[in-house]
Amino acid sequence: MFHVGYTVQGVWRLLKRHGWSCQVSVRQALERDEAVIEVWKAEVWPRAKVPRTTWAPTSASRTRVASR
């Protein structure tokens, strides 16, 4: 919105300045099911993950291709 960029370190300093801290849970949730997580990682995640695009020359033009 304001065209301002921050580095990871800059965001961390900004958050600390405003009283935020890194919070990590002491223990895992009782409802956590490792078997279901492994199935999700093996079956669902590969379908949801966007394939990486390889480098290829592209057009620098912002206009759309004319339709015929």
Results as ranks from 00 to 15, higher is better:
residue 1 M to L: 11
residue 1 M to Q: 11
residue 1 M to V: 13
residue 3 H to E: 15
residue 3 H to Y: 11
residue 3 H to C: 12
residue 4 V to F: 00
residue 4 V to S: 00
residue 4 V to E: 00
residue 5 G to H: 04
residue 6 Y to Q: 02
residue 6 Y to N: 07
residue 6 Y to I: 02
residue 6 Y to L: 10
residue 6 Y to R: 05
residue 8 V to D: 06
residue 8 V to K: 06
residue 9 Q to G: 15
residue 10 G to M: 03
residue 10 G to Q: 05
residue 10 G to R: 03
residue 11 V to N: 01
residue 11 V to S: 00
residue 12 W to H: 09
residue 12 W to T: 15
residue 14 L to K: 00
residue 14 L to A: 03
residue 14 L to V: 04
residue 15 L to I: 01
residue 16 K to A: 12
residue 16 K to I: 09
residue 17 R to I: 03
residue 17 R to Y: 06
residue 18 H to Y: 14
residue 18 H to K: 13
residue 18 H to A: 08
residue 18 H to T: 13
residue 19 G to Y: 00
residue 20 W to N: 05
residue 20 W to T: 05
residue 20 W to A: 14
residue 22 C to Y: 09
residue 22 C to V: 15
residue 24 V to P: 02
residue 24 V to K: 03
residue 25 S to N: 07
residue 25 S to Y: 06
residue 26 V to M: 08
residue 26 V to R: 12
residue 27 R to D: 14
residue 27 R to V: 15
residue 28 Q to I: 12
residue 28 Q to H: 06
residue 29 A to I: 03
residue 29 A to C: 02
residue 29 A to L: 02
residue 30 L to C: 06
residue 31 E to C: 08
residue 32 R to E: 11
residue 33 D to M: 00
residue 34 E to I: 13
residue 34 E to L: 14
residue 34 E to C: 07
residue 34 E to P: 03
residue 34 E to T: 11
residue 35 A to L: 10
residue 35 A to F: 04
residue 35 A to W: 05
residue 35 A to G: 09
residue 35 A to V: 14
residue 36 V to G: 01
residue 37 I to R: 08
